[in-house]
């Protein structure tokens, strides 16, 4: 698969469709091809100056034009909730969560960028990031452990790293991001 231009501009719907189409393709290929067992699908995205990736199997959809309802007294990285076709989904500000400087914290009237809805078998959340990139396939063996130089808070959220076109990409630990909030009550 192509890695494409990382710094692609704002995400037009056409592009979203393309991303989804490619994702569908790559998902289909995982089952079809023997060789694909040795690769990992990643959805790249930008947070501040850095590029990160979600494992593609955790990505459910890309969501635009949403209206966030703020919920009082939640952790600062929770924007609120949105109504995704009748399902209530929390909105997570990954930049704040990972303590990565980003532009996801915006004024109340500013439009929010696209959100990536991610899920594991327990939880679903919509993640606000700065910019969505491509879907890439990387050889499994090229995925390395997360850099030890990472900030401690960030290290928790990064499950591994991989070089793509000379750029170091942190693979986000979705299970950590999707830890339920207030569960211990």
């Amino acid at each position: 698969m192509t890695s494409g231009e990382l710094g692609a501009g704002s995400i037009a719907n056409v592009q979203v469709a393309e991303v989804l189409r490619r994702r569908a393709e790559s998902l289909a290929q995982i089952q079809d091809e023997e060789t694909s067992r040795d690769t990992r699908g990643l959805l790249l995205f930008r947070l501040g100056e850095e590029w990160y990736a979600f494992p593609i199997e955790g990505v459910r959809e890309i969501y635009n034009d949403y209206l966030i309802t703020r919920i009082p007294r939640v952790p600062d990285y929770i924007f609120g909730v949105v109504n995704v076709r009748g399902e209530i989904v929390s909105v997570t500000d990954l930049g704040t969560m990972m303590r990565v400087p980003s532009r996801t914290q915006r004024g109340p009237d500013e439009e929010l960028p696209s959100a990536i809805i991610v899920a594991n078998d327990r939880c679903v959340t919509a993640i606000v990031i700065d910019e969505i990139g491509d879907i890439v396939e990387v050889p499994r063996e090229s995925v390395e452990p997360a850099l030890s130089t990472l900030d401690k808070t960030q290290a928790e959220y990064v499950a591994g790293s991989v070089y793509i076109e000379g750029r170091l990409i942190g693979i986000v630990n979705l299970d950590k991001v999707l830890e339920p909030i207030g569960d211990n009550a």
């Binding site: 919920i71 007294r73 909730v81 209530i88 959340t125 909030i181 207030g182």
Partner: peptide, 11 residues
């Protein structure tokens, strides 16, 4: 509140 926000004070 969805699967992610299990328990939120006041809500």
């Amino acid at each position: 509140l969805g699967t992610h926000l299990k328990r939120v004070d006041n809500v």
